[in-house]
Design a protein around this nucleic acid. Structure first.
Length: 459
RNA sequence: GCCGGGGUCGCCUAGCCUGGUAGGGCGCCGGCCUGCUAAGCCGGUGGGGGAUAACCCCGCGCGGGUUCGAAUCCCGCCCCCGGCGCCA
């Protein structure tokens, strides 16, 4: 009955109850379903009406050429009358179509069955933990609540002394960052990093690029800006005002992640089954307005307007996407194990999921000074949400079947945020910070880069 | 940025001047034929509506306009190629 159709729309039409359940689980307005179905029906009705009128008009038009002058005038007049009715119907269609599309744009991806149902992050389910966390006495009960309280046991040691937060290490212990000056000349949430932290940033990117390319991911340096049309197909509408910078006077947006241009890479393409999955690793700066963040994480470089990121991105056959999802999160885990950063992976609760994600795993590092787990990685399967909007399809040779493919994205390493995790977790009593061993080979290339420790700069 | 040429159904290409509703080749899919393969023959191969029907609508880079009728004429934009300019 339906040809090429977004999976959500298919379910919406064929079994609306299933979609109602999805909306309920996501704590969304269930009445959207009925509103949409009504509009969808009307849209189809108006389209049929319009097509009939157009057909009549086409028939008349095609007769005109062969008519003698006196009859021709009559037919032309008749055709002109029809045009009036057609343009009325076109206006009606445009209206209905606009409303229908607006409603469809608010529809989410279907949920994976293992997504925990709940309105907020307290319903997130911890799926794995790794490493030995350093926990200050004052944070012990919080730590236990966030691990054993969630049904997992994580190795830890209680430390007696006070640990220093990343922002203070950055500016007052190492003295390798200046957010005050950056705030003055740019804005808050910008930063200057110096010397060893710049080498560290570079080494982290190299490490992730090396790891992923050696596992078959294709390395990509993408455009850092995208046209509005493509941004709108890749990202949810709310991102435009909360997250994205727009170039003044041009239809261009700065990317907030390499996911954006990597998703747009195959816009309009039909990819043969044998070429899937396509695995990419993008490296790019990321620009984010953080408009919704208010005064959260205002100190340091945990939440900033600009950073570097290595991103995993995959195009898959629909039946492959969950397998690839687990591949992406496993890759991320291996990277942080290498960096010796204790972490947990959480399955994000339904109410916290964005519209695109069918399921999202976050990798959260333990921050011993903050006494919290905080997000370093976000791994999502968006199913055909983006493929539908960007018109990216697979082609199955057998029977020439074409349909939307699946897309997935996952952080590998976001530089500044990973640096904050390293500063907090690898800080030493003497003020130095230990450089993880896996980075050494990427630092060896530079004579002035740190190899074992990052040392404070003397005043 | 300026001047010139161009963008047609996966790929190539005809049609554009002179408006009448997209033709051919390749590839691919399905069928016939064949001991098998090849060749050959037939059909299909952009999107939507409709009952996976008949049939119909839309589609020639994108968006407008003129016309009963636009791939074709007009306007704006995007992209590609060549030349000039500028530039790391």
């Amino acid at each position: 009955m339906f040809g090429l159709v977004w999976s959500t729309l298919k379910v919406l039409r064929e079994s609306p109850d299933v979609l109602r359940e999805v909306l309920r689980k996501r704590f969304m307005d269930v009445s959207l379903v009925d509103k949409f179905l009504e509009l969808d029906k009307e849209w189809r009705r108006v389209q049929t009406e319009l097509n009939k009128l157009r057909h009549q008009h086409n028939v008349l038009s095609s007769r005109v050429a062969g008519l003698p002058p006196e009859e021709r005038e009559k037919v032309v007049t008749e055709a002109k009358e029809l045009l009036g009715r057609i343009s009325e119907m076109e206006k009606r269609l445009e209206e209905v179509e606009r409303d229908r599309k607006a409603l469809l744009d608010r529809m989410p991806s279907l949920l994976h069955e293992s997504v925990p149902v709940g309105p907020d992050e307290s319903f997130n389910v911890v799926v794995s933990v790794w490493g030995r966390a350093r926990v200050q006495q004052a944070h012990l009960s919080d730590f236990l609540a966030e691990t054993e309280g969630k049904g997992v046991k994580m190795d830890y040691e209680v430390v007696e002394k006070d640990l220093t937060g990343h922002a203070d290490i950055l500016e007052y212990v190492l003295r390798l960052g200046d957010t005050v000056k950056a705030g003055e000349v740019a804005a808050s949430r910008f930063y200057y990093l110096f010397d060893d932290l710049v080498w560290l940033d570079l080494a982290l990117l190299s490490y992730a690029m090396d790891y992923l390319t050696s596992r078959g991911f294709r390395l990509v340096l993408p455009p850092y800006m995208l046209r509005g049309k493509y941004m709108g197909a890749v990202e949810e509408f709310t991102a435009f005002k909360d997250a994205l910078y727009k170039i003044d006077g041009e239809d261009l947006y700065l990317i907030a992640t390499a996911e954006h241009p990597l998703a747009a890479l195959h816009a309009g393409d039909t990819i043969p089954e044998e070429e899937l999955p396509k695995l990419y690793v993008g490296v790019s700066p990321c620009f984010r307005k953080e408009a919704g963040a208010a005064s959260r994480d205002i100190k340091g470089i945990f939440r900033v307007h600009q950073f570097h990121k290595v991103e995993q991105f995959a195009y898959t056959m629909p039946e492959q996407s969950w397998e690839v999802f687990h591949l992406l999160i496993r890759n991320a885990e291996e990277l942080y194990k290498g960096l010796e950063i204790p972490y947990r992976v959480v399955n994000i609760a339904s109410g916290e999921l964005n519209l695109r994600a069918s399921m999202k795993y976050d990798l959260e590092a333990w921050y011993p000074a903050q006494g919290k787990f905080r997000e370093l990685v976000s791994c999502s399967n968006v199913l055909d949400w983006q493929a539908y909007r960007l018109n990216v399809r697979y082609l199955r040779r057998k029977g020439m079947v074409k349909d939307y493919l699946h897309m997935l994205n996952s952080t590998a390493i976001a530089s500044t945020r990973t640096i904050t995790a390293i500063l907090e977790n690898h800080q030493n009593d003497d003020g130095t910070v230990t450089v993880p061993n896996v980075l050494r080979k990427y630092l060896e290339a530079f004579s002035r880069a740190p190899k074992d420790y990052i040392h404070p700069v003397r005043k």
